[in-house]
Design a protein around this nucleic acid. Structure first.
Length: 284
DNA sequence: AGGATAGCCTGCGGGC
DNA sequence: TGCCCGCAGGCTATCC
């Protein structure tokens, strides 16, 4: 999935379409992708913001909250292959019959007398939708379980989490309850930039390294947001536009290739069940 | 309790 | 040209 930079690009691109738009109609084509607030009984159109005016799009980690003027909130998690598309990008493509197959929800909105469509698409269905009567309830149920957003992380957040554990520094970075937004790509990129080996046990990370790590995470994410996120396979923003951050990856996906800093062959192995790449020379 | 393991899904690329 | 296999950006439930 989209990690923080990709989700932030979706939030921004989606905002340009749906902010201040009124939801005229919505339909849930695959009800099991949605977890309604009230549990049983399925998801009503009202819960999916029908009749509301979109006033705010917030992001925390990898999740987006779409908030209506009356407080109703729809949280979107893109999982591995999820997309939210709006405007032209949301319309069916006659030349691509596979496109429509994985559209699980569809909204019709209107803004300035112009109708527009928004869809949630997710072939692998690891993502999903969650509905809430208010943003506070969404926060209590979902976001309060997450660590601070990775864009705002500092050594003060990371240090205690690392100091107290024997698990690898990489699995700590991937733990959304420690910091929210880092996934496999940006974990490897941040560790490379900080010069820290992903296999290191959390408690062995020095204060200096924690500082470097916090700085590296923010830098790597920031640059990736500016590059439109990483498009490895299917990622696209709400306009269907791909990112180019993958062109600047130093570690992720480069196992066996030369390190861009020192030329050594990058190593690759599974750490915490995730494919991990690092430089045996530059990372200690 | 923390940490390692399956499992959820589909699609794609590589090797045969 | 297929077909089969392994692999993929995430997260959860379960087991040890």
């Amino acid at each position: 999935m989209p990690e923080l930079p990709e989700v932030e690009r979706v939030r921004r691109s989606l905002s340009t379409h749906i902010l201040n738009a009124r939801v005229l109609h919505c339909e849930l084509l695959r009800p099991d992708v949605c977890t309604p607030f009230d549990g049983a009984g399925g998801t009503s159109a009202t819960e999916l913001l029908e009749g509301g005016v979109i006033r705010e799009l917030r992001r925390h980690g990898k999740q987006i909250a779409i908030i209506a003027g009356d407080g109703r909130t729809l949280v979107v998690h893109l999982g591995m292959s999820g997309q939210v598309l709006a405007g032209t990008a949301a319309r069916a493509r006659p030349h691509d019959p596979g496109f429509a197959r994985h559209i699980h929800a569809r909204w019709i909105l209107v803004r300035d007398e112009e109708r527009l469509e928004m869809v949630f698409r997710d072939p692998r269905r690891f993502g999903g939708l969650w509905t809430f009567p208010s943003f506070q309830q969404a926060h209590a149920a979902l976001w309060s379980q997450l660590g601070p957003d990775a864009m705002l992380v500092d050594a003060g957040v990371l240090a205690p989490a690392l100091r107290s554990t024997a698990r690898s520094v990489k699995s700590v970075l991937l733990d959304q309850s420690v910091i929210a937004g880092v996934g496999n790509i940006y974990a490897d990129e941040s560790l490379f930039r900080a010069g820290v080996r992903p296999t290191r046990r959390g408690r062995t990370i020095t204060r200096t390294e924690v500082e470097r790590l916090a700085t590296a995470i923010k830098y790597v994410l920031d640059v990736a947001v500016d590059a439109g996120g990483s498009t490895l396979r299917s990622y696209a923003d709400a306009d269907g536009v791909a990112g180019s951050a993958q062109l600047t990856h130093a570690a992720y996906g480069r196992g066996g290739k030369p390190c861009i800093r020192c030329g050594a062959t990058l190593r690759r192995k599974s750490v915490g069940q995730r494919t991990t790449v690092w430089c045996p020379t530059c990372q200690h």
